[in-house]
Design a protein around this nucleic acid. Structure first.
Length: 440
RNA sequence: GCAGGGAUGGCGGAGUGGUUAACGCGUUAGACUGCUAAUCUAAACUCCGAAAGGAGGCGAGGGUUCGAAUCCCUCUUCCUGCGCCA
């Protein structure tokens, strides 16, 4: 959540309200936060005055007891104050709870160059990369979606969807998965399962070469951690609860963010760069009709994720680096993609800025998200209490996250883009060493 | 799973019911001497407050007490031993 100081200072509060308006959100959360903060402060003050009074009496008793003098009268007085304190304390706690409930619903302050706009159609196209294979009937739409900036060649055959190819070539089993687990589950089979493993390892090796620490993280976190790393809406739509108070992670971002919880990080060790591998679990509630066929949108997948802790002034530079890392990987997988700046209304609360990388899908005739990277400033790290020290003063570190790739989603892009007229799937050269085969 | 022992500042570590959580290391600032070394002095948990000041803090949450790091209960977590196990 945001620094409470931003709500107290008029100038900052104005900026904050403007940011909320630019997100096309009501300013009620911010206003209620401010209101309850003031109530809390007042209640706290009166409560502390009572406590001070009581502490004074306690000290007097200690003095009397030392000299073996009677203390009964003061004891009575102290007990009386106690009941008053209890009431005041109750009030104080309630105000603080309300304050932070509203505060957690205020979005991060938008980054200076975040695209302001409402609705997906206002996302801003940053760049295109690669050469797309486009069916004749999709050319017009392709040109619009790529802003006319992307190279393409017309497909000379009718491409098959990843679902058809997968079933034809016995690369996954969806029916049996549905029978034993439910919809949106899958068995990956044979060479496709190998490709899945290969692609993860390929990505991890690449990032380790860039100096990232590789982390294979837990898949389950406790309530405390999930509350500090997820947003309220995630609990309703995304997260699986297991056991009493534990949750399956929806992304390694949650474990990596929590890795340094309650730590004071030496300034000169920043930035701390992590690349995590984990399975991810998502309920996908509220997306019942979307992408139901195949392995594009599933309840369980594996993801390689970058997560970096850094100094506030380095956020933007590092964000760009992380996006570049993602791009490099997708380029080596020879997938045509576009990079989008997500507009303000479509940002999650944590993100001040978010860029999505979307691959061209020749069968659907549209771009689909492969991953995204966000500037989150100190929004998560404040909850997690991760600080660094500079000249004996403590500051909250900043953090950023960015996908490298998620599989099996990326497999759908590979299958559809790299299929040949003869019905084969070409494996990108970069993966040969890992797969041990060049085509499926 | 069972039994025993722990959890105190950035780190190490004392403190077994009474006013201000000792001490050491490291950090920062200042002084001093050719010096960034040594030495000396000071500062540094969190919250409210412009400040003066006040409140809360010893893994978390409760309780006993005028008063709890210290006593009691529940939980979390770590260590040791035993058991089980891919």
């Amino acid at each position: 959540m945001l620094d409470i100081a931003l709500f107290r200072n008029d100038k900052d509060f104005k900026k904050l309200l403007e940011s909320e308006k630019n997100r096309f959100r009501e300013t009620k959360n911010a206003e209620e936060t401010k209101k309850y903060d003031e109530l809390w402060k007042k209640a706290k003050q009166t409560c502390e005055e009572k406590k001070a009074e009581k502490n004074k009496i306690t000290k007097e008793i200690a003095e009397l007891a030392k000299n073996k003098k009677p203390i009964d009268q003061l004891k009575e007085k102290s007990k009386k104050i106690d009941t008053e304190i209890k009431d005041l304390e109750q009030k104080q706690i309630e105000y603080l709870k309300s304050r932070d409930k509203y505060r957690s619903e205020v979005g991060n302050i938008l980054w200076h160059n975040t695209t302001i706009g409402q609705g997906e159609e206002n996302n801003h196209l940053i760049k295109c990369c690669g050469k797309a294979k486009v069916q004749k009937s999709h050319i017009k739409q392709f040109k619009t979606l790529s802003g006319g900036k992307m190279q393409f060649e017309e497909l000379k055959f009718n491409p098959k969807s990843h679902v058809d190819i997968g079933l034809e070539k016995d690369l996954f089993d969806l029916e049996r998965a549905a029978k034993i687990s439910g919809s949106r589950f899958y068995f990956l089979k044979n060479k496709l399962a190998i490709l899945h493993l290969s692609i993860l390892r390929f990505a991890i090796d690449k990032l380790m070469k860039k100096g990232f620490n590789f982390m294979y993280t837990p898949f389950i976190v406790n309530k405390d951690t999930i509350e500090k790393t997820a947003e309220l809406s995630d609990f309703e739509e995304m997260l699986y609860k297991v056991g009493n108070d534990q949750f399956l992670i929806a992304t390694a971002e949650q474990t990596l963010a929590g890795f340094h919880m309650d730590e004071l990080i030496p300034k000169d060790s920043l930035p701390l760069k992590y690349v995590g591998l984990s399975s991810c679990f998502r309920r996908e509630a509220g997306s019942h009709t979307k992408d139901t066929r195949g392995i594009f949108r599933v309840h369980q997948f594996d993801k390689v994720e970058q997560y970096i802790f850094c100094l506030p002034e380095d956020s933007e530079k590092i964000h760009n680096e992380m996006i570049k890392n993602e791009e490099e990987i997708i380029q080596e997988l020879e997938l045509p993609y576009r990079l989008m700046d997500i507009c303000s209304s479509d940002l999650n609360l944590t993100a001040a800025k978010k860029n999505d990388l979307e691959a061209w899908m020749p069968v659907q005739g549209t771009f689909r998200e492969l991953g995204s990277g966000s500037i989150t400033t100190d929004y998560q790290t404040r909850n997690l209490n991760i600080k660094y020290e500079d000249k004996n003063e403590k500051f909250v570190v900043h953090s950023l996250n960015c996908t490298i790739l998620a599989s099996p989603r990326i497999l759908t892009a590979i299958i559809e883009n790299h299929q040949t007229k003869e019905g084969k799937i070409n494996i990108p050269k970069a993966l040969w060493l890992y797969t041990g085969f060049k085509e499926i």
